Computed example of a mutant assay.
Amino acid sequence: MRVAIAGAGAVGRAIAVELIENDHEVLLIDRAPEAVVPERIPQAQWLQADACEMSSLEAAKLQTYDVMIAATGDDKANLVTSLLAKSEFGVPRTVGRVNHPDNEWLFTEAWGVDVNVSTPRIMAALVEEAVTVGDLVRLFTFRKGNANLVELTLPDNSPYVGKPAGLVPWPENCLLVTILRDGQVYPPEKDQPLESGDELLFVINEEAEDALQELLSPRSPKA
């Protein structure tokens, strides 16, 4: 997969390293000369240019990339980059970094953003996930399809403790993705019994979240 990253700061470089380690081809774009230091990540391609300008993205041949990640520290720049990538170059997937929570509402498909990543929201969700048992915690929102990635730690009093996952009457538009137990990852096989303390990850439509909460933890209703 070919991935272009706008912003060669700490965040952009960290993303690049992870992608390269997973055998993806990466291009880092930054307008600041001091940020373009190929020796930092020699496996990546580098381009000193302003990702908000059409000429820069044309020089990068952005139309040949599968993903555009707008990871600068400027929300306006991330929005413009995402919009250009999607509307002018037809990049199939765009990811926009949200630096200020008040701007999160702008990072939608209308601005060419397929997925927005808000650090404050993710940190808050991880805190909730770490301390909450029996309550549904939303970890991530998929802009396309009105679906969310959610987590629920199965409480002792759940009516489905000890029952196979295949016998649970999951709500419509709800998919159990994986089961995390004692540091191990288990596939959600039909005969896999659920245990107290299991961390269950789901992809689910927002409208079905309350039903899932009530199904697995009826004595701890969602606030």
Rank of each mutant, 00 (worst) to 15 (best):
I122F: 06
E129H: 12
K222C: 03
A6S: 10
A125L: 10
G197L: 01
L152R: 04
V36S: 10
K76S: 14
L216S: 02
A6W: 07
N148E: 15
M1F: 12
E58W: 05
R138H: 12
Y160N: 04
I29S: 05
E172D: 15
E189P: 08
T81W: 04
V3K: 09
G166D: 06
V98H: 12
A165K: 11
A77N: 07
S220I: 14
E129Q: 15
R2Y: 11
N205K: 15
A124T: 13
S196K: 06
F142W: 07
F142S: 08
V127M: 10
P120N: 04
D210V: 09
A208H: 06
K163N: 12
C174Y: 05
D30R: 00
Y65R: 01
L200S: 04
P171Q: 03
T108M: 05
A70C: 05
E206F: 05
A4S: 02
P218G: 06
K144L: 12
V150P: 10
V203Q: 05
L47D: 11
D135G: 13
A4T: 01
V150L: 03
A223G: 11
I20L: 14
I41M: 09
A59R: 15
K144I: 11
L180C: 11
N99I: 03
L57G: 00
V3L: 04
D182C: 09
G162W: 11
P221W: 00
V91Y: 12
A211Y: 00
N22V: 07
D66Q: 15
A165W: 05
N205E: 15
E209S: 02
A51E: 08
E199N: 14
L200W: 02
I179E: 02
A208D: 06
D74W: 03
V161N: 09
T108H: 05
A130F: 04
L215F: 02
W170D: 09
T64S: 11
R138L: 12
Q45L: 14
T132H: 09
N99H: 13
Q213P: 02
L149W: 01
D74L: 03
P159Q: 12
N157P: 05
L126T: 08
F142L: 15
N103P: 08
V127T: 12
V17M: 12
T153N: 10
E206H: 11
H100P: 08
I20F: 07
V185R: 13
T81M: 02
L149M: 08
A59L: 10
A71H: 09
L167E: 15
N146I: 04
V67P: 12
A4E: 00
Y65S: 00
G197H: 00
T94P: 11
E88D: 11
R93C: 06
W170S: 10
D23W: 10
A124S: 14
T64Q: 15
P193A: 04
V67E: 02
S118A: 04
R31V: 03
C174F: 04
N146K: 07
S118G: 09
T94N: 01
P188V: 00
N146Y: 09
V185P: 05
A60R: 08
L136Y: 02
I29Q: 05
G145F: 00
